[in-house]
Design a protein around this nucleic acid. Structure first.
Length: 484
RNA sequence: CAGGGUGUAGUUCAGUUGGUAGAACGCUUCGUUCGGGACGAAGAGGUCGCGAGUUCAAAUCCCGCCACCCUGACCA
């Protein structure tokens, strides 16, 4: 097993997850605190990760036929009031502009917490006929929700996301869209973030304000709390009826559009960082890492370094041509040990150490960030080996996270077991629930665990059980956890 | 909003009974180094969170305010 070099200044993940998280986000230069409360600056390294994710999701959206657009940041206050549930859900966390240009506004403007209302106002103008459908529009933007307490990436006053908003002829079409979005999110988490998720449907209490149903992907964090990774909503005709999105259908009848909305935010990055890091810092899965390989030339002052530099350049070009995202760290300072540490904190999956030895032997020394394992690789095998190692790291990280998740998923049949787990290791709990909101609220108050979802794979199972809380008839095992 | 904590150099912090500002790391320059946080020399850097007060004198004492962090309720 490879030697592990301890970080002197970094807080230990193994001791306190939340201290470690804050520390690593700042030291890896992912983000910094903004001057106004609850705001966050996403620094270039953190933003590069977000840009990768944007590219990945955006490609999937476009293949499906979703197009991008941009809608205004400001929404007339009255728009929010139109859909009752939507208003009720969002009113406590709205930022409202009351003055502009030195004058009090006649109608206050809401800084968008989400764009259903303003987009659907426009959709009503654009949609007349079934021939205008479907409308599949996404926007990459920022939204503001005035949270009481904020946390880097996981909960900030302003956050970045994409919000897809669609209108369809039939509910079947809408549900197909809703499911497609959920599948994209699952894929982003599992294949790129290497974070296993459970896809399911939200309870009435937990669903999006104004939605008919909400799909979610839920991930388990190392402290046993769950992160709602992304959501996809079937809005039914709730919004089309209040925003008057009417069209004439194929039978020449007037009908309201069937709608969906779906979103994936920078919160997901918080989950990504929490899941994979260790006491040495971040570990980024190769598929999402902006830099997959960091090449470190190791110079000698008593030798000419010309050949070494040339060899390093040659390696870099070969990697780039092979489609590997690579950066060379040829800085003279600080010393090499410190630079190793910097890149480890940043979680670059693979490091190449290239000194005179490697340059002479036509090799590279390859070091895995996740295991610390060092191997000497022949120049001729380099590209194939790197690709293999990157894939192995990606798979290993996913498996490791999945093993943890499965180990911390408990099926319980009694409320005592339920409470005991919540008091100790936490994690996911699968238990029968009668689907009555009273029990859901009581469980949350008593154990902090809320329903996360009814896993999709269990929806069609009609089991014969009793509610873990009240003992009434229950047909589904729901997934519970304390939420982030 | 409630509870806890903290505000002094870029960062982390020390600063005794009130006496006029310190350390470490970081930063800059020069030189020697580089296979796991190197070393030497020289340097730059402060409205002690803000306001009012007590005092000959306040980082230090009193009063008020503000900001941020952590823990809860809310939430993607």
């Amino acid at each position: 097993m490879a030697k592990v070099f301890e970080k002197k200044e970094l807080k230990k993940k193994s001791e306190n997850l939340s201290d470690w998280y804050t520390d690593v986000v700042l030291k890896a230069e992912l983000a910094d605190y903004g001057p106004a409360k609850g705001t966050m600056v996403i620094r270039p390294y953190g933003y590069a990760i977000w840009e990768r994710l944007q590219h990945i999701l955006d490609t999937m959206f476009k293949e499906y036929g979703v197009v991008n657009a941009y809608f205004p940041l400001f929404i007339p206050y009255s728009f929010l009031e139109k859909e009752k549930e939507h208003m009720k859900g969002f009113s406590p966390e709205l930022a409202i502009v009351t003055h502009g240009g030195g004058e009090k506004l006649k109608e206050p403007l809401v800084v968008r917490p989400t764009s259903e209302t303003i987009m659907y106002h426009m959709y009503a103008k654009w949609i007349q006929s079934y021939r205008d459908l479907p409308v599949l529009i996404n926007q990459w933007n920022n939204v503001v929700r005035w949270e009481m307490r904020t946390y880097l990436f996981l909960r900030t006053t302003e956050f970045l996301w994409q919000e897809g908003h669609t209108a369809h002829e039939t509910e079947v079409d809408a549900i197909r869209m809703q499911e497609a979005a959920l599948a994209w999110y699952q894929k982003a988490y599992e294949e790129y973030y290497a974070v296993p998720v459970i896809a399911g449907i939200k309870s009435n209490k937990e669903k999006f304000a104004g939605a008919k149903t909400t799909y979610t992907v839920e991930a388990l964090m190392p402290d046993g709390k769950a992160l709602q990774g992304a959501t996809s909503h079937n809005l039914g005709q709730n919004f089309s009826k209040v925003f008057d999105i009417k069209f004439q259908n194929r039978k020449s009848q007037e009908d309201f559009a069937w709608q969906t909305s779906w979103g994936f935010s920078t919160r997901s990055l918080g989950g990504l960082f929490l899941v994979h890091g260790d006491d040495q810092g971040l570990i980024l899965p190769p598929n999402i890492a902006p830099m997959q390989v960091i090449v470190m030339p190791i110079r000698k002052s008593d030798l000419s370094n010309e050949l070494l530099d040339e060899y390093v350049q040659n390696i870099k070009e070969a990697l780039l041509n092979g489609g590997v995202r690579v950066k060379v760290d040829a800085r003279e300072e600080p010393s090499v040990g410190r630079r190793f540490n910097e890149w480890e904190v940043k979680g670059i999956p693979v490091r190449f150490e290239i000194g005179h030895k490697e340059a002479e032997d036509n090799t590279v020394t390859l070091v895995r960030r996740d295991t610390g394992e060092k191997t000497v690789v022949k120049r001729s095998d380099m590209l194939v080996t790197v690709e293999k190692v990157l894939k192995t790291i990606q798979d290993d990280l996913f498996e490791k996270a999945k093993t943890f998740r499965d180990k911390h998923t408990h099926e319980v049949s009694t409320y005592d077991e339920f409470k005991k787990i919540m008091e100790t290791s936490r994690g996911f709990i699968k238990a029968f629930w009668c689907e009555n909101a009273h029990c859901e609220t009581a469980i949350k108050e008593e154990t902090k665990a809320s329903t996360r979802c009814l896993p999709l794979e269990d929806i069609d199972k009609n089991l014969d059980g009793v509610c873990v809380k009240c003992g009434a008839k229950a047909i589904h095992k729901w997934l519970f956890a304390q939420a982030y």
